[in-house]
Amino acid sequence: MNWLNNYVRPKIRSLVGAKSDVPENLWLQCVSCEQMLFHRDLEDNLNVCSNCGHHMRLPARRRLETLFDDGKFQEIELPENVVDPLKFRDRKRYSDRLKDSRSSTGRTDAIIVAHGEVGGQKTVIAVFDFAFMGGSMGIAVGNGILAGAQLAVLQDAAFVAIPSSGGARMQEGILSLMQMPRTTIAVQQVKEAGLPYIVILADPTTGGVTASFAMLGDIAMSEPGSIIGFAGARVIEETIREKLPDGFQRSEYLLEHGMIDMVVKRHDLKDTLARVIDLLMRKSPGAEIVQIKADAGEVSDTDSGTGTDGVGSADGADDGSKPDPD
C-alpha cells in the first residue's frame, strides 16, 4: 500500500484501479527512529512519536485546541493590510507566493490569534503557522502579535506567543525587519499592563523572530528537541568551517545555556502553561480567606506536614493545589 502511495503517481494509480477515496499517506515515518506510525494514532498522540517520543511539528490550529480549556477558543479576525508593499519578485512574484500559501493553508497569513481560557484564566494566544511560508514574519504577522497583545491588555488576560518561524519574511524587506521593534512594543504593552507574557518556542524558532518578541517572555518554555537559534546551523558551519556540536540549537541546549526556563513535553504543556498563568494571575486565591486561615494555623500547625503545604492543605484553604510529592 505504502509503496503504491509513494511511488505511483495519482493519475496512474487511478488507472491501475486504486480506490480514489483512500487518503494518501496513511502511514508516516518518524524522522528520529524511523518507526512507521499510523496517521490517526500520531494525531491522537499530538504528533509525538509513540515509539521514541520525538516531537513533530503540530499544526497551528491543533496547538490552540490542545492548550485552551476543552479545546474552546475564539479566533479573532486580523485586519487586512496592504499586500506586497515592495512589489517584490524573486523567481516568482511575492503576491503569487502569497496567493499559493493562502489557498493551500486557507488563512491570510502565518499567524492565528485566539482568546479563551487556560486553566480557567483569560488568555490570548498568538500562534504561528509554519505551513504558511515557513512561518515567516512580515507586517501581517507583526500586526497579529500587536493585535494579540492589545487584546490581552483589553481583556486583562495573559498573553502567550507560540512562534514557529524561519525568521523575517525576506519578501517584505526592511519592513519585515521593522517587525522586530514593532513586536517588542507589543510585549512592552503587555508588560506595562502588569500581565504575564509567556513564550512557547516551538520548532523551529529562528532569526528575527527569536531576536525579538520570542526571547522576551517573562517565562520561556519549549518542547523537547525544538530548534531555537538566531543564525541557521548551515550558515554558521559555512562561516566558521567547523562541525557544530551535537544538540546545537536544540531546546535542551538552550536550557543548559540559560536561555529558557524549561523544556516541557507536549503532553504536559497545557498543565504547565495553566499552572504558570495561575501563579502569575491568581496571586492569592481569596487573599482574605488565606489570611484568616493563616492566623488560625499559627496555633494548630505544630505538627509538621511532610511534603504538603502545612497550613494550607491542613485547613483545606489550599484550593485544589496538589501537594508536592516527596
Binding site: H257, G258, I260, D261, V290
Partner: peptide, 26 residues
C-alpha cells in the same frame, strides 16, 4: 515551578528558583 537560566550564559544549579505558593500566596 522551577525556572531556569540567566538569559545570558548558563543555567546555574547552585541557585534554584521558581514560582510557587506559600500558603496559597503566589
Amino acid at each position: 515551578t522551577p525556572l531556569a537560566g540567566d538569559r545570558g550564559y548558563a543555567e546555574d544549579n547552585a541557585i534554584i528558583g521558581g514560582l510557587g505558593r506559600f500558603e496559597g500566596q503566589s
